[in-house]
Nucleic acid binder design. Sequence first.
DNA 1: CGAGCACTTGATCGCTTTCAATAGCTGTGG
DNA 2: CCACAGCTATTGAAAGCGATCAAGTGCTCG
Lengths: 246, 246
Amino acid sequence: MLKAQIDHTNCSECPIRHRAVCAHCDANELEELEGIKYYRSFEAGQTVIWSGDQMNFVGSVVSGIASLTQTMEDGRTQMVGLLLPSDFVGRPGRDSAPYDVQATTDLVMCCFRKKPFEQLMNDTPHIAHRLLQMTLDELDAAREWMLVLGRKTAREKIASLLSIIARRDASIVPKAKPGPIVFDLPLTREAMADYLGLTLETVSRQISALKKEGIIELEGKRHVTIPDMRRLMDEAGDDSDGGFLI
Amino acid sequence: MLKAQIDHTNCSECPIRHRAVCAHCDANELEELEGIKYYRSFEAGQTVIWSGDQMNFVGSVVSGIASLTQTMEDGRTQMVGLLLPSDFVGRPGRDSAPYDVQATTDLVMCCFRKKPFEQLMNDTPHIAHRLLQMTLDELDAAREWMLVLGRKTAREKIASLLSIIARRDASIVPKAKPGPIVFDLPLTREAMADYLGLTLETVSRQISALKKEGIIELEGKRHVTIPDMRRLMDEAGDDSDGGFLI
DNA sequence: CGAGCACTTGATCGCTTTCAATAGCTGTGG
DNA sequence: CCACAGCTATTGAAAGCGATCAAGTGCTCG
């Protein structure tokens, strides 16, 4: 199953070709990238990189979801990044990883050894430029999330997270915006809690409350239907224009 | 007084020359930058840019402190960035500002019109490369802050903020690390609350508590002495190695 | 069938917020 | 010179929200 996803060694058939760090590369540049790339797969729950470890590769998420987490000495953990397909992992110009990177779901990454990639970045402005744009987007997303963590109530936090996942799915499945939105939660209650700065009990309670009030519908624990996106957005406390990023 | 700070129109005498986006520029590149730059001053409290406004310049903080803030409809506000001298403001490749930018103290900025700057970025890899590094640093700082917002107690939040300000002052005044650290708080209690996701009352209470326990000393409301940095760091809940960024 | 895991639900506790009063400081005008 | 407004900050008392502690449910897998 995983195998099927990693069999396209050809960049031109890659599902993230138009959104990843290689998005604006021309044929020559792509050829160079093909020369130094390799795929790695991880099972849900596996750690890709430990905080503080030497990082000798960078790469893109091809499929699945990875998370960046920080942990305090007493065990409190905070997720600080959610990496979706096409997102970039790693930091050119720095040796050790600043956060734990974990596979939240089964995960396939397209990796490049760091040194050759850095070299390539110096030679091909397309890649450096694209990486700058992606990093600026991530910074916007992180700052958006700081508002959620610092100022929103538990209920608003849950609604915000569901909005973001719903919106992402809506943009991946590029159909219009009619009626209900349906998706599967890619996170456990605990992972949601770590992302939102809550306990898993509070996450569970708030999801139950939203369900009781008909703002969301649940089938099993993970399959979510949002009958009216606007109601959910209201609960999230965002401006109705919805200038949200991730 | 402000005038004195903006009189060095010559980049080679600029106090942020070696840390700002222009850090790695050679003489030619610097000359091009000089051609498109201009200084702007703001008084404490002034708004530099409103969220959603057209941004037709980018620039560097030369002196003073600026803050990025987000505001919800009901008035809750969260500071999402604290911009110190040499930090970059603005986003090449995007037209409108995503956040309010405010002068927290009297502020001097070195501005570039956006179009020429973008052009220059395309031509001079030094600038693009430096901006990428600075953006990655900001992303690290934002993620560090997400841990503070999501998982730390009020007391730890205050201690974290004081640690960061103390550390910044220590690195700007490049003397060794003996004895007590002394600095002035550049933020009101309310601004600290907005940064930390607290109320100003809680900020005040926690500062009083740290003072009562001798972890900090106060002269007036803003002048702080830290007799033992290690004790403060312990209160902040960070790993003792102190791998903190801003 | 029982172990293990993810999740839910209940009861209670405690930290932070909220509401409110007061202090200290600065600048203004009678 | 003093009174007073306006602002920042401190402190107190009470309320509320989310955390903690504790069962219990439902599911999957051996």
